[in-house]
């Protein structure tokens, strides 16, 4: 078996008294699209944030492209990486937030070029050319110079996807990218994501859009109370769930 792009091993995370993740282990291969589903508070967001190191894990480990994230093993002990090293590791992942989090004082294209120019030190002209290409991919060429406040939610989220892609990540993380959107705007964002999946991007998507999961995901993972209850091919998990809890969740959602 080839080495997975993401390997999550026995990851636990506690907030105060509350255990948000309990010994979670999961592999994601390159090019795979994985959907995470589960009830509110089941730890889906926390898992994505651990992969992007916005939240440090308490125990266990996450390997991305063979590299252990956040810590370094030396002499039988784990040493936390510096902020700079963590920032460098983060470049391999792109994150799309539920609430877009575009930079409101920058135009759409400035949002996209900010990372390439400021962090990766690329030339402004190259970055702009690539940003225009990304805007074309998400269908927003005409909105390059609009500020986020002048865009609809769906347009903002598509710019946010372009902003993440501009860093050329090997893994894209989506945290409920459509749940802050009006229903009529969900489709435009999902179709951008679908196109991205078809281009071969490795994606982990937290979503309540089961139609998207069924159509686009290779695998679906069902989480409950901080643990993975069931995972498998999307048609199996969504079509014929083995676990009673998965079945209950799916019948409640549909």
């Amino acid at each position: 078996m080839t080495r997975p792009l993401v390997a999550i091993r026995s990851v636990s995370k506690t907030f105060g008294e509350f255990q948000a993740l309990k010994q979670v282990s999961l592999d994601v291969s390159a090019g795979e699209v994985l959907c995470l589903i589960g009830a509110s508070g089941s730890g889906k967001t926390t898992l994505l944030r651990c992969i992007n190191q916005l939240t440090p894990v308490d125990s266990g480990g996450i390997w991305l492209d063979g590299e252990l994230l956040g810590v370094r093993e030396q002499g039988g002990r784990l040493h936390r990486l510096t902020e700079r090293q963590i920032a460098r590791q983060r470049l391999k992942t792109g994150m799309v937030f539920q609430r877009f989090n575009l930079f409101p004082h920058k135009t759409a294209i400035e949002n996209i070029t900010e990372g390439p120019v400021q962090v990766q030190g690329r030339s402004r002209d190259d970055a702009r050319t690539e940003a225009m290409e990304l805007l074309r991919r998400v269908g927003l060429t005409a909105k390059a110079d609009a500020y986020p406040a002048q865009l609809s939610g769906g347009q903002q989220q598509r710019v946010a996807i372009a902003r993440a892609l501009a860093m050329k990540p090997m893994l894209m993380l989506f945290d409920e990218p459509t749940s802050a959107l009006d229903p009529e705007l969900v489709g435009e964002v999902l179709s951008v994501m679908k196109e991205l999946a078809q281009s071969g991007m490795t994606m982990m998507v937290v979503t309540h859009e089961l139609g998207f999961a069924r159509e686009v995901a290779d695998r679906v993972v069902y989480m409950d109370h901080g643990a993975i209850v069931e995972s498998g091919f999307s048609r199996d998990v969504l079509g014929a769930p083995r676990e009673a809890r998965t079945r209950a969740f799916l019948s409640a959602v549909i």
Partner: peptide, 19 residues
């Protein structure tokens, strides 16, 4: 969320503050 979005595109603390 602004701070997190800045981190997510690889910015360090000071750069995120400044930019």
């Amino acid at each position: 969320g602004q701070y997190e979005a800045a981190k997510a595109i690889g910015m360090g603390r000071l750069r995120a503050l400044r930019r």
